[in-house]
Structures are given as C-alpha cells and as structure tokens.
Design a protein around this nucleic acid. Structure first.
Length: 149
RNA sequence: UGAGUGAAUUAAACAAUCGCUGGUAACUUUGGUUACUGGAGGAAAGUCCGGGCUCCACAGGACAGGAUGCUAGGUAACGCCUAGGCAGCGUGAGCUGACGGAAAGUGCAACAGAGAGCUGAACCGCCGAAGCAACGUAAGUUGCUGGUAAGGGUGAAAAGGUGCGGUAAGAGCGCACCGCAGGACUGGCAACAGGACUGGCAGGGUAAACCCCAUCCGGAGCAAGGUCAAAUAGGGAAACAAUUCAUUUUCGGAUGAAUAGAAAUGGUCCAUUUCGUUUCCGGGUAGACCGCUACAGGUGUUAAGUGAUUAACAUCGCAGACGAAUGAUUGUUCAUGACAGAACCCGGCUUAUCGAUUCACUCAAUUU
RNA sequence: CGGAAUAUAGCGCAGUCUGGUAGCGCACCUGUUUUGGGUACAGGUGGUCGGGGGUUCGAAUCCCUCUAUUCCGA
C-alpha cells in the first residue's frame, strides 16, 4: 500500500475513520442497562448481538463475554479482540446503533475467520438500510471479503 | 551409536498497513494532535504456604485452637532451598521420603482364630519321663492329672532366624554365627557412624487416633484504606424573621402600628392539604482521584562459602489497565507454533505444557 | 478479585467428626390383589461414594493434590 494513498484516506474525515477510541465504547453499567432494555436481539451459535438504534450520530460497542461460556481468560480475550476489530472496520456503517456482543457456546472451537464472518452477518442486520448506498455496500463487501480471506 | 540421569536457556522470526494503551516533550480551540519511547508468563493459573503494605484490636502472661517435626545452615519469612545423616528404589548416573516420642497416660483392632494384650495361649498335633487309677505275674497298655510353642491351621500382626547339641517330647535350655538391648572409647558442630566388652533375649502394632515434647502463630484483607465531592432526605449554627403604612434619619437603617403569606388540588369562589426563607458547617451516596508500581529489582564482575546464599563495585529503568490495553490483515521463511493472559506487590510450592538448544554424568554395544 | 462450602443409586438426602456391613424415600422391575389399570402388599435390580496418589492389615470416612458445581462480599 502506498503512503500517499493512506494519507488521502485519512484526509476527508480528519479524525481517524478506523479508530476505536473511548467514545465508541459503552463505559458504564447504566449505558449497558439502557441497551439491554431497548435492544433487539439476534444471534447464531457463535455470537449473540443486542442492537439499539438511537438518535445520536455515533456507534458504540459493548462486550459481555461471560465466564460461563468461555472459562479460559485467553479465549475470552481472543473473542473480545475479534469483536473489537470487526466493529472497528464496520462502525461507519453502524452509525446510530449501540451494540452489545455476547459469546455463544460454539465459539470456543471455531477459528478466527468463521467467527469474524458470522459477526459481520449479524452486524449487517443493524446497518442503516434506509440509505443503502451502493458505495457503502461495495466498501462493506470488500472489507468483509478481505476479513474472511 | 543407542538408552538414560541431572542442571540451565528458550517459548517461531522478519517486513508493511490499520488499531489500543502508559510515560516524556512540543503545540493546543484544554476536546485532543504530533514526535520519541515502553507494553503479559514460565507457569501470569490453582490459591496451598510465607512475607511486605493498609485498617481494626492490643500492659503482660496463661489456656484453648492451628501449623510444623532427622541434623546443621540460608532467608524478610516459610510447610521453601542447600549440605549432610538415615531408610527405600535403581546395574548405574541418580531419584523418593509428614523421617520427634509408644520406659507418661487413654483409646482402637471388624471377620477369622484355641488365643489379639497386666500376669500370654493348648484347637489339631507331639510326649507318656513324673503322680494317680484300671488291666496284667511281669514287661507294658489305656485313661486322667499333666508336659510341650518344633509342626499344622487362623490372621495384617501370634514372645528373634539358621545349624548343632539336648530331651519323654520340646523349649535361648546350652553353644556357634547373624539379629536385639546396654555400652567404655573413637570420628563428627550435630543428626549419626564404627565399636572393645557385657546380657542370654527383656519385647507387640497404630501418633496422616487422642495425646506428650520442642518451635512458631492477634484479626481482616487493595471491593484494605485514604482525598475531593453533585442531587435528595435528615442533623447543627447564624442571619433575615413576609408585606404595607406612619414617624425619624448620619440615607446604611431604627422605632411603632396593622394585615397575614406562599404552594398544590379545583373551570371559579368557598373549601381541603402542606410549608418559614437564605447562607454556612459537618457527614458522606453517585462519581472522580490516590493507593499503583523503584524494589527483600534485574544484569555483569570480583570476593567468601562444598552449596543455598551473602558482600562490594559497575550498569540498566523493565506493563500498570479500569467493560479492562499486547491485536488484526497481508507477504516471506522455518514449519504447521504446546500450556495458556498481569489486576496491590514479592518469595516459594503444586498443577498444565508441542517442541528446540547447551553443559555435565551413567549404562550397553562397536571400532581404534 | 477476594472469602466459604458441596460432590454418595435415575432424582432428593443420611452415613464422614469416632476407619471394618453403603443405607432411606421416590422412581424402575417381578409377583399377589383387580375383568383391566390405579391404589395397597411382598420381593428384587441398580452405586468407579467426583478423579488421582498416600497413611493403614483395611479408606465413602484420615492426609495431599486436581476437576466440577454452588453461595457470599459492589
């Protein structure tokens, strides 16, 4: 990848489009409770996602990886890292949505590529469908393809 | 060359892009941005021990309770480590060991067995020397009183083992060797080892049963504890005590008189219900910050010591998060990367673990 | 993160302190009663005592060590 291209990608939004700073996370217990009360729940054997479409123009991620489903700490860390990474790449499509990601029981034996693919499917259910730009769609597809491959 | 033992090191490497986070510096619109630099382990795990640190309790001592348990040393301390002793395992290098006391007391031992604990015990056997009785002329035979722990049998365990003598049959009854008990003396700081000589053998097992002896131990734990501090309710203190009118004035107020007021319910009145106001103090909830990483620190050299370790000097700065950071993707190489993730910090122990490398040593085979 | 407790038959529990026979209720099976079923009565099956190691003649029990589950502290 050329350095000039990376600079040009950074130019338009000016504040790190792929960043994952503190304001893109759920920080307090109240925020988590709000999301759990208002949210719609979707899931598959690997993940369970609670999504809440609010009015503000930001995306927030919360993680609730239970010790009951994954006993070992390094396994939990692995899933959290994968979830953060996936959210980081997709959060421009998830503007206006707060999501809480939980782990399923089949996640322990799955490898990284399948886990990321399933999580992208679930996140796509919450993307802003009313403005389905072909550009966003194509960029999202390329991202997901690169992640899967 | 093969098999093995012990000790130590390591825990895929490199590059690019995106991303998280601590520190320092600069800029800043105090939101951040940029640059440099640091960012999981040998077990971070289990929480089984020991300590630091914090709060609470506390004159001192004893009892209770708990832990440890060969000897000497190391250490802040330990149930850890080192060296030695003893016992067991291994051809060996080596490995393993809760390894004080049963001549203080109490308890326990099912079933089996004749007998299981103060003086031992006679079921099957063996004997018929001694005493008594019967038969018999007698030798003798049988029975009883008995003798006997060599043999059988029971059991986890039954009063040393082997051999010779001895005897009615037997028996440490006697002797030899081994074992056991005591033991002058020798070596060693000690545990302990060797042992002239003496005794003919006394005595069970269990202390991860109670217990005795020696040593050690106050309790809770960073969600400890401390600092700042919204809102609401309650506590304390001070000021004004609500409005209008009159008089007076040094224009800040003071004095006197009168009336009461505010909020809610309700279309309105009546009516009903509730209530002094403001400021400060203390307390401490939500929340934020400190504790939070520079210390029994790492590395190297020298010296002391068999060693654990200690001392001196030099040098290094090496995670500190708070829904919780070490990652993801791509490429190349080896190869298909095991166990597994800090949460106050150290020293150990225990458990999990694909492998790779180095050193020392042992055994076997072959060659020179 | 810290602090406690539990694990015994398909299910719920005794027995563990004080070591020798593993038991109770429900369930299951068989038989009797009934035209048949239920009920009742009688009998029976079923347990690596969570895993491993140690002490002991002998361990569900005593000791050590792993595993799983539950509870408490905001």
């Amino acid at each position: 990848m050329q350095p000039s291209e990376s600079i040009s990608r950074l130019q338009p939004s000016r504040e790190k489009p792929l960043g994952f700073s503190r304001d893109k996370r759920l920080l307090t217990g109240k925020a988590y409770k709000q999301v759990f009360d208002q949210a719609r729940r979707v899931g598959n054997p690997y993940w369970t996602v609670y999504g809440w479409r609010h009015k503000e123009a930001k995306a927030e991620l919360g993680l609730a990886i239970a010790k009951k489903t994954l006993r070992r700490a390094h396994e939990r860390n692995r899933l959290k890292r994968l979830a953060r990474e996936t959210f980081r790449h997709m959060h421009t499509d998830l503007l206006g949505v707060s999501v809480v990601v939980m782990a399923g029981k089949s996640a322990q034996s799955a490898d990284n590529a399948t886990l990321v693919a399933h999580l992208i499917k679930l996140f796509n259910l919450f993307t802003v469908r009313r403005s389905v730009d072909s550009i966003a769609q194509s960029s999202q597809q390329t991202q997901s393809q690169s992640l899967i491959s």
